[in-house]
Design a protein around this nucleic acid. Structure first.
Lengths: 185, 185
DNA sequence: ACCTGAACACCGTTCAAGT
DNA sequence: ACCTGAACACCGTTCAAGT
């Protein structure tokens, strides 16, 4: 197995899924690939860039696609996309941290994020507001996933609702309500 | 200056404010206090617990208090509290990470968080929903602060709005709208 | 009770030197 | 072009031994 950018990123995804971010070190990754640590730096610039690519691998999957035409309204499509995102990220340890790194690096090709913005525009928000709404909803998934993963990790994974879905519905309602002409100006 | 829990935490807060979380290591902290690293572990259990105490120090300040009686409605008080929180956290480097550690450790005495929940209840939400609403709004501040701190750090601190306030208004509207009888059941 | 000294088991990144 | 070996400058945590 030749050492390429692809194998490096894929192995990183593997380690993340199986052992979490704490175990995803450059040295551990090198060991898994049977090379010296330095060799990795021929294929990726640094750890941050590697994590951004890991995030892209996690999010750019057809499983997270949603077609607006399949729903009664764009709002319904938004809800569906957000629910898929939550369920996809929940089983991947520390996924919120990884995705925050990617967002921080201005990674532009996270498909579900672009899709979310586009759906919000289809629902009637202008470009700027779609962007703000995207932020609100993204903050909510990542925050909720992080919160729940933490509960799971440090004790019982209480079966009861964590409020993600309720908060999501209220947020989407707030974003798309007809009273959306900004309250103050 | 005797080495106590208090001085350790206060010095940690100092380092965080001046240099950020990356520089807040146990070794750096020990150097600042002119002691060996091991000495710190007599006064704090570990780094995680230290960070939780740092978060508490940051949040449990009278500057972040808001009295419901001073506003036309509980909803207005919520908006005000959230705006104060945002402005208070923005200048403190990596404050969202630090606060997430505290929340993760189930720290119960973060006053602005308790206040937020209480205001949501005063606005008419039942206990469970107030808790969910608190989550939504907290996710939004922490996410927005992290996002903005990142922009500041890696280039221009664009003066234009980051959408925090618009998202906040829409979220609060969604939470407190009269159509709050859950849409689906 | 409180602190030192020193160790243990790690990190990310760089770079001359090899092939 | 791609990789090794080895170094540099760090981490958090523990613990016998000192005072």
């Amino acid at each position: 197995m030749a050492l390429t950018q692809l194998t490096v990123v894929d192995t990183a995804v593997d380690i993340l899924q199986q052992f979490g971010l704490a175990d995803l070190s450059m040295r551990r990754l090198a060991k898994e690939l049977d090379v010296q640590v330095g060799a990795l730096y021929w294929h990726v610039k640094n750890k941050q860039e590697l994590l951004a690519q890991v995030a892209a691998k996690l999010l750019n999957t057809p499983a997270l696609a949603v077609r607006a035409e399949d729903f009664a309204s764009p709002g319904e499509a938004v809800l569906q996309l957000m629910r898929k995102l939550y369920l996809a990220l929940l089983p991947i340890q520390d996924s919120p941290e990884v995705i925050e790194v990617a967002s921080a690096m201005q990674v532009k090709d996270l498909q579900p994020v672009l899709l979310l913005r586009s759906l919000l525009q289809q629902a009637g928000l202008d470009a700027e507001r779609a962007c703000f709404g995207q932020q609100l909803l993204l903050n909510h998934v990542l925050g909720s996933v992080a919160y729940r993963q933490n509960l799971i990790q440090l004790d019982v994974a209480s079966e009861e609702s964590d409020g993600y879905d309720w908060g999501l519905q209220r947020a989407v309602a707030g974003l798309l309500s007809p009273a959306c002409a900004t309250a103050q100006d």
